[in-house]
Amino acid sequence: MQIDWIWGLLGGLMIGCAGALFLLGNGRIMGASGILGGLIDGSGRSNWAERTAFLVGVIALPAVLQSSGALSTQTNLTSNLGLIIIAGLLVGLGTRIGNGCTSGHGVCGISRLSPRGIVATLVYISAGAVMVVFLRGIWGAL
C-alpha cells in the first residue's frame, strides 16, 4: 500500500511517454475513446490501420507480460452484470458526446493547458465522485 504511489508515478510516466511518442511521431492525440470510437462509428476510417495498431499494442503487450509472469494485474471489477452494462453504456456515450476521456481530455488536454480538457476533467471527476458517494453512502454498495 505504501509504495503504490511509486507504481502510480512510474505507470503514469509510461502513459505520458506513450502520449508523447504518438504526438511527436504521428502527430496524433492519444485518446483511448477517440481512437476506438472513430473505428466504431466510422469517423476514423481514413486512418483505421494506425488506430488498430495502437489498440493491438494496448492489449497485446500486457497480455504477453502477464503470461510470462512479469506482470500481475490487480482488479476489483464488480460481478454485478447490470452495473457493468449501465456503466459501459454511460462511458461509451459520454466520452463520444463529450469528445474525450481520461487520456484525451485528462492526459493530453491538461498538459496542453486546453481549457476544454481542463473543464471536462473537472466535470467528469466531480460526476464520478458524486456517483461514488451515492454508491457508498446511500446505496450501501462498494
Binding site: 502477464q66 482488479t75 449501465i86 459520454g94 466520452t95 458526446i97 463529450g98 481520461t102 473543464v119
Partner: peptide
Amino acid sequence: SLILGAVLFGAGWGLVGLCPGPAIASLSYG
C-alpha cells in the same frame, strides 16, 4: 455536449471504476 458528455462519462466511471483505456486493456485481464 462537452459538459453533458463529461457528466455521463464520469457517472459511468464512478459506477464501476473503468474508463475507456483500461476497458480496452481489460481484454488482457478483465
